[in-house]
């Protein structure tokens, strides 16, 4: 496809070839496909106390659920919230897909999708997701996680990372404008978001979209704060953008006034090492 300025863009067709699936499959192919599908299942692992209560049919009581998707959002929680030692780890989700690194026997400690519960107020839950969840796993992840939570009086806040390259605007964005927040909320959300609403024709995709879809049809009050940043790795300026979103939750989640520098250093250094552009 050629644009107005004549440069040629490679476009992929969104149309699925109609003939592929009609092909006859032999038994071996079918088995491989089935095994792959099983491997791509999302599994939730809760601590014994929680899984026992879930088994007996009692869902996790939850009034506030904060979900952080992406490195900056997740590390924002690590640096500002989880440092207070008021949090218990209650479980994690294991997700395998084409982008998962081949780590044999990965322990729950290393898992990239962890659930925390507030020690004093056990109806406050948090989840950090730093792993990639594939398109076909998003729906399943959301169904499984929300199936464990009590829906009555549940409020969901999603913090999500995004690249400013994905943000469309008629005005040219100067670099000083980034990072910035945009919000999107379900029909049942009654509060006032702390930032501007996401303008058309912008959309959100990925886990935050899956959560929004689920909460919209099940009428759960949910707000997504999407942070558009121009820096790839975790950085302190982008993390700080999320602060107003959680200060609003005030009573349930205590936010440290300044980032915990020890924790911050750990996350920032790991990405610095990888950049060897100018040694």
């Amino acid at each position: 496809m050629a644009t107005f300025f004549g440069e040629v863009l490679s476009v992929y067709s969104r149309a699925v070839e109609e003939d592929d699936e009609e092909l006859e499959e032999n038994e071996e192919d079918e088995q491989i496909r089935r095994e792959l599908e099983e491997k791509r299942e999302v599994h939730l692992h809760w601590i014994p106390e929680v899984s026992d209560s879930l088994k007996s049919g009692n869902k996790l009581p939850c009034s506030e659920f904060v979900l952080a998707v992406g490195h900056n959002a997740a590390r924002f929680l690590s640096v500002y919230v989880l440092t207070s030692a008021n949090w218990d780890k209650v479980g994690h989700a294991s997700v395998w897909n084409e982008r998962s690194r081949a780590v044999a026997g990965q322990t729950s400690k290393e898992s990239a999708c962890v659930f925390y519960r507030h020690k004093e107020n056990p109806t406050v839950l948090m989840c950090q997701v730093t792993s990639h969840i594939a398109e076909d796993q998003l729906f399943q992840w959301t169904e499984k996680v929300f199936d464990c939570l009590q829906h009555r009086e549940l409020n969901v806040t999603v913090l999500s990372d995004s690249s400013v390259a994905d943000y469309k605007t008629a005005d040219y964005l100067c670099t000083s404008a980034t990072p910035f927040l945009r919000s999107l909320h379900t029909g049942t959300f009654s509060g006032k978001p702390v930032c501007q609403s996401l303008e058309q024709p912008n959309i959100v995709t990925g886990l935050s979209a899956a959560v929004l879809n689920h909460c919209q049809v099940h009428r759960i009050a949910t707000v997504v704060y999407q942070c558009y940043s121009d820096i790839l790795g975790p950085d302190s300026v982008t993390m700080e953008t999320y602060k107003p979103a959680l200060t609003k939750l005030g009573k349930s989640i205590q936010l440290a006034s300044s980032p915990n520098t020890d924790v911050l250093r750990k996350f920032i250094q790991t990405t610095e090492i990888q950049s060897n552009l100018y040694i």
């Binding site: 999107l184 909320h185 029909g187 959309i203 979209a209 879809n213 919209q216």
Partner: peptide, 19 residues
């Protein structure tokens, strides 16, 4: 594939914020 956005058919400011 999941996606979400505000009202694609909004005609005024009031109905723009609709998932």
């Amino acid at each position: 594939i999941p996606m979400a956005g505000n009202n694609p058919y909004s005609t005024c400011r009031e109905d723009a914020e609709e998932l």
